[in-house]
Amino acid sequence: MIHKSTIGKICLFILLTLSTGQLLAAKYEPLVVVADSYIDLRTGPGRGFPIFHVVEKNEQIRLIKRKTDWIKVKTLDKSGAKEGWVRVRDMHKTLDTDGKAIQLPKQGIEQFNARNWNLGFSGGDLDGAAILTVFANYYLSPRISAQLSASQILGDFTDGYMGNVNLTLSPFPEWRVSPFFTLGTGIIHTKPQTTVVQAEDRTDEIVHVGLGTDVYLTQRFVFRMEYKRHTILGSQETNEEINEWKAGFSIFF
């Protein structure tokens, strides 16, 4: 059974997105001059697409838009403007109309060191149960970030949720394999599964310490492995300690 309201909302969303895309007419489409001996134009934003045109030195081209590390450009040919795709790093010698080098975004590991935000997800094991986590890091400095994470716990006998805030310290942010330490706190909520007779729902405070490593892979893509030791405080006589192991991916901005 499809809910009519759900479909309505999806349609409305698509329409809104399309209309805003079309309405934003005042686009940033700067004119640049080719300073390299030539630049290849490809039919699509990927290394496998065929080269169909070559723009020569001193010719002007307009930059239209960007898709991952490719830029769509338009030539000013009088015989008919051509549109094609150029790799960002192939434009490093391109100048603006004043003869000044254009500013390319940071490439490779350079941008990893300058990251402000890191968003990711991971999967792993929390004391025998499966755990799925989404997380966001905000970098206060290259070495220190504040992290917010939300997890779903899927065990054989109990399910639950966990939310954490922590400080993450990465002593070597310039390394491709960059280790980090975390210290934080949060809450954990667990409830028994319907098929198992067990104690009632529980909500407890937790504190954790952990360590892990980010591995810079490519572009804005990072692999992360992490271990945390949680101490569950509160509703029981003794504090229970549980281990969490997980691995996942993140993208940074």
């Binding site: 969303f13 934003l24 940033y28 930059l63 991952t68 830029i71 254009i102 500013q103």
Partner: peptide
């Protein structure tokens, strides 16, 4: 302000679908 900055270009890296 006058520099041509590639990161200011309209980018199409996000995708939403049904």
């Amino acid at each position: 302000r006058r520099d041509v900055r590639v990161d200011k270009l309209d980018s199409e890296n996000f995708e939403l679908g049904a």
